[in-house]
């Protein structure tokens, strides 16, 4: 059974992390969480991101939620906002894809191109590969 004592231990361990997080410029990972996102499976995506962030011990990352972005057919949508860089929007996410994004984009700085939303001639494309062929 879990006890509050355990929680105090965790707190002691993470206190430094909290302080670090306040001074540093942080990366934000934002998940769309309106009715459309939730119905499309945004909750497991959000939890997978949180889990991956904690597994990799990333202290300068904030995981947050937002409402409907207006592109319901492309949900679940994840946005990665790194300080000083342009926002990257990932579409049709799954927990597995989201974990890859945390590893490759957030940690290594390589944008995972195949999941990114592409806008060509002012039109949002559902499927990147079609455009490539």
């Amino acid at each position: 059974m879990k006890t509050i004592k355990e929680l105090e231990e965790i707190r002691k361990k993470t206190l430094d992390v909290v302080n670090q997080r306040k001074d540093r410029t942080t990366t934000r990972i934002v998940v769309g969480m309106a009715t459309c996102g939730i119905a499309a499976g945004a909750r497991p995506v959000l939890l997978a991101i949180m889990d991956e962030v904690s597994k990799l011990g990333l202290s300068d990352v904030i995981v947050a939620q937002t409402g409907c972005i207006g592109l319901c057919r492309l949900e679940p949508i994840v946005e990665v906002i790194k300080p000083g860089e342009e926002k990257v929007t990932y579409i049709k996410m799954t927990p597995e894809k989201a974990r890859r994004i945390v590893k490759e984009h957030v940690v290594e700085g390589k944008v995972v191109d195949e999941y990114v939303m592409h806008v060509v001639d002012g039109k949002v494309l559902n499927d990147y590969s079609v455009q490539n062929d």
């Binding site: 059974m1 879990k2 355990e6 105090e8 707190r11 992390v17 909290v18 949180m50």
Partner: peptide, 25 residues
């Protein structure tokens, strides 16, 4: 109640993980 023990910031992943397990149990 949790905030009384660990302060205002609950958004750290390992604290949320703990809360999740706690509620599940």
């Amino acid at each position: 109640e949790i905030k009384k023990v660990i302060g205002e910031d609950l958004t750290l992943p390992n604290i949320l993980q703990w809360i999740k397990e706690y509620i599940k149990e």
